[in-house]
Design a protein around this nucleic acid. Structure first.
Lengths: 154, 154
DNA sequence: TTTTCTGCAAACGATTTGCATACAC
DNA sequence: GTGTATGCAAATCGTTTGCAGAAAA
């Protein structure tokens, strides 16, 4: 199943690359693989990915990581997320429209990021589309506050 | 009315500063004033503010602008917003809970930012608080897509 | 082949910091 | 007076870019 998931993602990558005239390279494959295999991290920065690559003795350079993350987002395979700490993170795009969006609770004290599922915004998207003529591709919701452990005190 | 608004904001600043042992300085006053007087901009980066200062022959340095924006956000007078273009912007915090939150539609093509009002998330906030124990202070919603002018083509 | 990709190092732009001086309290 | 704030310039950090060689198609 995890195996199938990875194969699916790699097929997807190959298809989307050639569709737009980009080439399949071992580096791009490797970087996507990291997201599929480290799903426990949910979101990773370029440095995070680079760190994992270095652990596995990979020779992939940091600039290549940046370029690949950029490309993978452009292809819709990854999604960019920003938590306001000045560095961009990426996560696998659950492109399946039946899969609920997930969003983030960011603790302003300990900076922990908690994920939550919701699909309440679909109605809102439609309202906005009708009222403003804006064609929505994606939305992002963040809640800032104190997590359970950081409430009270200081 | 605009005059009252400014006076109110400055009183607010003075109170919040001394409350925490910070000092009221002409620089901090000046920078806050820019947000009050240029409400037509909605959100400004440090460079935006610095630019306005230089036009008015002010001698305030860029580092001071950064420090003041930081402080004003910490005091809850300004709110940080990020549109993913790698530079932090700030806007006046409408601290009044009766004032609806406003959020952003960001055109992925022309980068235009459109504001919209909504208050649909209040219910959601309560649900989250109950389910996760997270104490929410603020939320931020962004929709990415194509604005009316950028739909179709390219 | 031909064009795209990579790795490296240098460049960049936004933001932060160290320090001596100036100012608010 | 005393401690905080300022302005400047240098430092930092994430990210981007130019370029020559390497590798997909």
């Amino acid at each position: 199943m995890s195996e199938n998931h990875r194969l699916f993602k790699l097929q997807d990558l190959r298809a989307k690359l050639s569709e737009r005239g980009y080439k399949m390279t071992p580096q791009r494959k490797e970087i996507l693989k990291i997201f599929v295999e480290h799903s426990e991290y949910h979101h990773m920065s370029a440095e995070d990915v680079y760190g994992i690559l270095r652990e596995s003795e990979s020779e992939i350079g940091l600039a290549t990581v940046y370029r690949a993350l950029d490309l993978l987002s452009e292809l819709g395979i990854l999604v960019r997320v920003e938590f306001g700490d000045g560095c961009t993170r990426y996560e696998l795009n659950t492109a399946d429209p039946n899969v609920h969006h997930h969003h983030h609770l960011i603790c302003v004290k300990c900076k922990k990021v908690i994920e939550f599922e919701e699909d309440l915004l679909d109605d809102l998207e439609e309202t906005i589309a009708q009222e403003s003529g804006f064609q929505i591709l994606n939305h992002e919701v963040k809640f800032f506050g104190y997590c359970k452990d950081c409430q009270g005190g200081d």
